[in-house]
Computed example of a mutant assay.
Amino acid sequence: MTTPVTARDRAKAERTDAILLAAADLFGARGYSGVSLEDIGAAVGISGPAVYRHFAGKQALLGALLIGVSEDLVSGGAAVVSGASDDRSRMAALVDFHVDFALRNADVIRVQDRDLSHLTADSQDDVRRLQRGYIELWIDTLGTLVDAERDELRLRVQACFGLLNSTPHSTSAALRTRADTARVLAAMAMAALTAVG
């Protein structure tokens, strides 16, 4: 990603980010098919056709949203792992990273669960490739703590993602403070990942 140099470039980058946030919110609430480019444009104060200055269309916007989030997970997860001092703290840092992601990005998780099929085949391949990379990062990290075959480690990681990514579908998270929710989810995730048996 390049850093915008001029005020105009910065304004365009900020508008692009605002469009992505609005799309996540609207797609999360109403689904891809229930949202038009006019809806997204209106949410950021521009016309629907003006969205084309930033994205080739609604499908391209969905692709940018889901691919961008997947890239952020891979790069963020790698940074977290490289900054930890020992095996257990690496795993705990990854869990904390993903808990924070799940709590901040409930709309994106809903969109991923429901609307991935609306992407082009190439964009779906990109998302799946990035997700595999993120899963492998978790498997490699968990493998330092749990003596198990790689298939079992994958099962543990994917079950943990199921737990953490179910947060947007749960009303119970609204009954706690975010810090309380994060603490409970992190403890549950670590227990599930390292469970004996």
Rank of each mutant, 00 (worst) to 15 (best):
I67R: 02
I67S: 07
I67E: 15
G68S: 08
G68P: 05
V69R: 02
V69S: 11
S70H: 08
S70V: 06
E71F: 00
D72T: 13
D72G: 14
L73E: 04
L73S: 04
L73K: 03
L73A: 07
V74A: 13
V74T: 13
S75T: 14
S75Q: 12
S75G: 00
S75H: 09
G76C: 09
G76N: 11
G77T: 09
G77L: 06
A79W: 02
S82A: 15
S82G: 15
S82C: 08
A84R: 03
S85P: 02
D86A: 10
D87R: 07
D87V: 09
D87A: 14
R88N: 12
S89T: 15
A92T: 11
A93Q: 00
A93T: 03
A93G: 15
L94K: 00
L94V: 09
L94A: 01
F97I: 09
H98C: 02
H98S: 03
V99E: 01
V99H: 04
V99Q: 01
D100M: 10
F101H: 08
F101L: 13
F101S: 04
F101P: 11
F101E: 06
A102N: 06
A102R: 00
L103F: 05
L103Q: 05
R104I: 08
N105Q: 10
N105D: 07
N105R: 08
A106L: 04
A106K: 01
D107C: 09
V108E: 00
V108D: 01
I109K: 01
I109R: 02
I109D: 02
Q112M: 14
Q112E: 12
Q112K: 10
D113P: 00
D113R: 14
R114F: 01
D115I: 05
L116G: 05
L116S: 11
S117F: 09
H118F: 14
H118K: 07
H118W: 11
L119F: 07
L119N: 04
L119I: 13
T120D: 12
T120S: 15
A121C: 07
A121M: 08
A121S: 12
D122T: 15
S123D: 15
S123V: 03
D125H: 14
D126V: 05
V127P: 08
R128H: 08
R128E: 13
R128K: 09
R128G: 08
R129N: 12
R129H: 05
R129Q: 13
L130C: 05
L130Q: 10
L130V: 08
Q131S: 14
Q131V: 15
Q131W: 12
R132W: 10
R132E: 12
R132A: 09
R132D: 05
G133Y: 07
G133T: 06
Y134R: 06
I135F: 02
I135R: 03
E136S: 05
E136P: 00
E136Q: 05
L137T: 02
W138R: 06
I139R: 02
D140F: 04
D140G: 06
D140E: 11
T141M: 07
L142C: 01
G143S: 01
G143H: 06
T144V: 12
T144K: 03
T144W: 02
V146P: 02
D147Q: 03
D147F: 04
D147P: 00
A148W: 06
A148Y: 03
E149C: 01
R150P: 06
D151M: 11
E152G: 12
E152Q: 12
E152C: 10
E152S: 14
L153N: 02
R154N: 10
R154V: 04
R156M: 10
R156E: 04
V157A: 02
V157I: 09
Q158E: 10
